[in-house]
């Protein structure tokens, strides 16, 4: 029903924090105002903009607080021990991680490990989903 690219499109609306290396006044976007931008000062922008700026080397992206090995290890453990779906850190964590890991891997500490953990988490949840469908 829904294209993966469309899910990604939705995920790109999530806000992430970037650290710009330029200064600029506020942008008056239709979806709301963002900025102002000052070098070195963190500011929240939608993911699509963050990735675009990253590609043009205008900023560093600060990974979301859940995107680190420690937190994900704990999350994975929790998910494993529970029979039901645990609340996730972000409804679009899968797409966000994919986008961030592709475009801004150098801003994420231990990117490979994070990648593996996210995939584990996903697999555990997918297995639960299959199980509950089987029961149905």
């Amino acid at each position: 029903m829904m294209d993966p690219s469309e899910v990604e499109f939705l995920a790109e609306k999530e806000l992430v924090t970037i650290i710009p290396n330029f200064s600029h006044n506020k942008f008056y976007l239709i979806s709301g105002d963002i900025g102002p931008f000052n070098p070195g000062l963190p500011v929240d922008v939608p993911l699509w903009l963050a990735i675009n700026m990253k590609q043009r080397q205008k900023c560093r992206i600060q990974p979301p607080e859940w995107m680190n090995v420690e937190f994900l290890e704990a999350k994975k453990q929790e998910e494993k021990e529970s029979a039901v779906f645990e609340a996730v850190m972000n409804p679009h964590f899968m797409e966000m991680s994919k986008l961030l890991l592709t475009h801004a891997a150098d801003d994420i500490t231990n990117a490979d490990e994070v990648h593996a953990l996210i995939k584990d988490l996903w697999d555990i949840r997918a297995a639960k989903l299959r199980q509950s469908v089987d029961k149905l």
Binding site: F9, H24, F27, L29, I30, S31, W48, L49, N52
Partner: peptide, 14 residues
Amino acid sequence: DMRILIHRMEIDRI
């Protein structure tokens, strides 16, 4: 101007 690019991207999304 940097704004042009950014606004264009948003317009494309909408």
